[in-house]
Amino acid sequence: MLVIGLTGDVGGGKSSVALLWEKEGAHIVDADKIVRELWREPEIIEAAVTRWGSVILDSDGSVRPQVIARLAFSDVREYRWLCDLIHPKVMRRMERAVFASNRWVVAEIPLLFEVGVPWWVDFVVYVTAPPDERLARLSSARGWGEEELRGREAYLLPREEKIRSSHWVIENDGTPEELRAKAAELAEMFSFFSEPIEVTVSCGSEEEARRLSKAVIDRRKAACVHVYPIESLYWWKGNVEEDHEWEVSFKTVLPLYPDLVGIISKEHSYEVPVINMASVVKANRDALLWLWEELSGEPDNHAHRS
């Protein structure tokens, strides 16, 4: 599983990128959506009413987000209290949602660096845009002016610091088509190495195991192969057999599995080679990049990576 932490400038266009990636097959886990769900829970509402009074409620008892925002951003103590109330619950729910998915996951978290990048995020992508374009979007969508934007950003970490801490930066400074192209380029890479796998098969001799390994490596259908001796006990045509065999283990990615099976089936001497595939739940980020760079056939020429 691959988890991309998606964040960026206020009004930079990260939600647009998330929607584009969803169309490419990503599962989106949206922090803002979880926040909205939390604000419907009695214990959260009660805590906020105790802190700020019933002024935060509409006549039907639901919260008034604009009032809460005004109170929270009026004083750093109020802002920190609200963060302590909401953020831990949001991150716990996001973690559960992430590990319930079996696709590549995009965790859209506006305050990703402010709350701390969680251990389950593999890479961070930051979406940025020119200030005038961000202000135009925010004015149209939320009615914000420059003073409101500056006031909100005063509570955030410096954007330059967040950009330096990100693995890729998407510059949303052109047309929608240009943004789509930039998002698609990264989506191709993320989709490719989102499901690392290990494939194993047994061979009757060390010579065959090494020949099979070389055939796969030469065709770049695996990035690494391990070969080691094993003792096997198995049923074959009604009899129990006992053999010295050699097991071959391939490190690769799911899109290459059909090609890998084809090579093994063609090159193997057994009548019935047993080919097993195991999904790798998590791999370190350097290993994922290594798989991409060695198996995709493309140089790493994407957006900035720190």
Rank of each mutant, 00 (worst) to 15 (best):
R40C: 10
V124R: 00
P65F: 04
S296R: 01
N172Q: 09
R219C: 08
G61Y: 05
E267K: 05
E198L: 13
V90D: 11
E108H: 02
P65Q: 09
D132M: 09
R211V: 06
D58S: 13
Y228A: 12
E241N: 12
G174Q: 05
E188I: 09
R180G: 13
P131D: 01
P229Y: 06
E188Y: 06
V76D: 15
V124S: 02
G262W: 09
S62D: 09
A223D: 00
G13W: 03
C224T: 08
I170H: 01
D58W: 00
G145A: 07
I170F: 02
K23S: 14
I217K: 09
I86G: 06
W292E: 00
L38S: 09
N239A: 14
V3P: 08
G238P: 08
A97K: 13
S205Q: 12
E78I: 02
A209V: 05
A184I: 01
R40E: 12
E231Q: 14
D75C: 06
H87L: 08
H226N: 15
E133Y: 12
P158S: 03
H226G: 13
K33Y: 07
A97D: 12
V98G: 04
E298V: 07
L156V: 05
R80L: 13
Y79W: 09
N172H: 07
E22W: 03
S205D: 09
E95N: 12
L295A: 04
K14Q: 06
V55S: 15
L149Q: 09
R134H: 11
N276R: 10
G25W: 00
S140L: 12
R134P: 07
W81E: 07
S306M: 11
